[in-house]
């Protein structure tokens, strides 16, 4: 009898713990988003998103974050475009060209897992050494290259997940119509997986736009909107990071505004991704 009571208590106790930690997760997300909103909203204004910093901005005078917003968009877009040129062929290689070579495919997945685990600060340091070696200055271009390497494993993983699910019969029927590898890869698989590829791109875009450590060394920081790839550029996360460290309350509050803008971008990406992947499951051939 005692044992039964003890069992019931144990069961209830752990059930309670499990329930509590699940609830904690939901509360945590709300808490984070609400705090960012609460701090960011009061300092968010039209000026913030439409102007670049003016003279004396860092002492609390006029100006906005447009340089960082545009810089971030440039950076993430550029990185994703370059990333696409590498990640798409790579995931097609694993799922079409070398589909039969299990050893090679496993080796690629292994290397990608390895790259996926490397922290972004190490990519930043790597990008920096390459910059020095090639004699490039801190610039948008250097940032784009570093970020594109850093998001590469994220993109490939997302695409690979989707392409793995393309039924073998679809490939076989395409090949039996006399298609070349390339035609099967780009006309059949890539098209069939298009929404999945977009998901991977968006995911990587979110990662790229939010990261500080990889761009800290490579992009520099400027109050101007970059006009060429060789210009330095500001980014949103860097704006948050630098301005939060300022002792002046006005400047600090702008860090909160930047944080809010960044959060909104991330949330938007997440909503679009969700919408796309839901549509994907409706339309794809299973």
């Amino acid at each position: 009898m005692m044992r039964r009571i003890f069992k019931i208590i144990e069961e209830r106790f752990f059930y309670g713990l499990m329930l509590a930690s699940t609830a904690f997760l939901v509360a945590l997300l709300l808490f984070i988003v609400l705090i960012i909103l609460y701090k960011g909203l009061p300092s968010l204004s039209w000026e913030m998103v439409s102007q670049t910093p003016k003279g004396g901005y860092y002492f609390g005078r006029e100006g906005g974050l447009l340089n960082a917003i545009i810089g971030s968009l440039y950076l993430a877009t550029g990185a994703v475009v370059i990333g696409l040129f590498i990640s798409l062929p790579l995931s097609l290689a694993m799922n079409v060209y070398f589909r039969n070579n299990k050893k090679l495919v496993n080796a690629i997945r292994f290397v990608l897992d390895l790259l996926w685990g490397i922290p972004s600060i190490v990519y930043g340091a790597f990008g920096f050494t390459i910059m020095i070696y090639l004699g490039i200055k801190t610039s948008l271009l250097a940032g784009i290259i570093t970020v594109s390497i850093f998001i590469l494993p994220i993109m490939v993983r997302a695409m690979d997940e989707i392409m793995k699910q393309v039924p073998l019969t679809l490939l076989e029927s395409a090949f039996s119509l006399g298609s070349t590898n390339t035609e099967v890869a780009f006309k059949v698989v890539a098209r069939q997986c298009f929404p999945g590829i977009v998901t991977g791109v968006l995911l990587a875009f979110g990662r790229g736009i939010g990261d500080v450590a990889a761009v800290l060394f490579t992009t520099g920081y400027t109050d101007n909107i970059p006009t060429s790839l060789m210009d330095q550029t500001a980014t949103l996360p860097l704006a948050v990071f630098f301005q939060l460290g300022s002792p002046i309350p006005e400047v600090q509050s702008r860090a909160y505004a930047a944080a809010l803008i960044l959060t909104v971008i991330i949330l938007l990406i997440s909503v679009v991704t969700r919408f796309l992947s839901r549509r994907y499951y409706k339309t794809s051939i299973k």
């Binding site: 997760l25 997300l29 500080v212 939060l244 944080a259 991330i266 990406i269 969700r274």
Partner: peptide, 28 residues
């Protein structure tokens, strides 16, 4: 239903940039 509800919660938590966690950390 709970799993379907929790999926985006986990995904968004995973997607929040680390600098935002930093800001939240400083504040809270």
């Amino acid at each position: 239903r709970l799993s379907v509800f929790m999926r985006p919660v986990i995904d968004i938590l995973a997607g929040i940039p680390s600098v935002i966690y930093g800001v939240w950390g400083v504040l809270i």
